[in-house]
């Protein structure tokens, strides 16, 4: 296998991954269960946290952005993949001349882009309505992009479970997503949590994504931004590798 072939194959894989993402965007972005899980759910969580708290709403916006990205990026594949298993269109992807990596990336890409689009809503509301200022746009962009990458791949990973019912995967996913909100410093700062909560927070990718976004807003950070980036990249690679293994295992 020579380098020329590698480049050609890589380009073909990228085209196929993008085709899968485009297809998902057209078909699934407006499905009611995705809109509810990706947009309305984080909004209600935000309102629940904001109500009764004696802090300016604008200060909670970075947490809302983090939670929105968590929910919206991981909501597409758990719906699309079981539906495609049921309609046998997933077999079309599995039998195409592309690697499992390309399929996983393509599936994740739609969630990634969806969440970035959705996260622009609280970001804009924060700036326009509450006068939020962003002290480091690069950190904000990095935090949003890496969080979206990480959580969309997490959604694809969960969707590897061989079921034809989106509800089965959403239930499992919520068992992970909901606790993450409470232990990752999104609405409750890490230093206000009990030691056990802080310890768990180290194992949550949301901790690092949220930390980076909080830093971008000039809020106190718990970690060095480079450490946040490194941890998010590590989580992304782990999710990608596990997802590949699971799809290969369950398709057999």
């Amino acid at each position: 296998m020579n380098a020329g072939f590698d480049r050609k194959q890589l380009a073909a894989e990228a085209v196929a991954a993008w085709a899968i993402a485009k297809k998902d965007m057209i078909i699934y972005y407006l499905k009611p269960n995705i809109v509810i899980a990706g947009l309305l759910f984080p909004l209600f969580m935000f309102l629940a946290f904001a109500a009764g708290k004696n802090v300016p709403l604008g200060a909670l916006i970075p947490g809302l952005i983090s939670v929105t990205i968590l929910f919206s990026s991981s909501s597409i594949e758990p719906v699309s993949i079981p539906i495609e298993r049921r309609t046998k269109t997933f077999e079309r992807l599995l039998s195409a001349p592309v690697s499992l990596h390309a399929i996983v990336v393509g599936e994740s890409l739609s969630g990634f882009l969806y969440s970035l689009g959705i996260a622009l809503v609280p970001l804009t509301v924060g700036i326009v309505a509450f006068g939020d200022t962003i002290s480091s746009p690069i950190m904000l962009m990095g935090g949003m992009l890496l969080s979206a990458l990480c959580f969309s791949t997490m959604g694809t990973l969960f969707a590897a479970y061989p079921t034809e019912s989106p509800g089965d995967i959403m239930s499992m996913l919520n068992l992970v997503r909901l606790p993450l909100i409470f232990v990752s410093g999104t609405f409750i700062p890490l230093d206000a949590m009990p030691p056990i909560g802080t310890a768990i927070a180290y194992f949550s990718p949301l901790t690092y994504g949220n930390d980076l976004i909080q830093s971008a807003y000039g809020h106190p950070a718990s970690f060095n931004p480079l450490a946040d980036v490194a941890m998010l990249v590590i989580f992304f690679v782990i999710f990608q590798l596990i997802a590949n293994r699971l799809y290969a295992h369950f398709n057999d």
């Binding site: 085209v15 297809k23 078909i27 079309r92 001349p97 592309v98």
Partner: peptide, 21 residues
């Protein structure tokens, strides 16, 4: 018949073409 019901026949064809490079 594993076609995508929510998109057009043309979009289905183009998607299959992209998958096969």
């Amino acid at each position: 018949s594993n076609v995508y019901d929510d998109i057009t026949a043309w979009q289905n064809m183009m998607f299959a073409g992209e998958l096969y490079h």
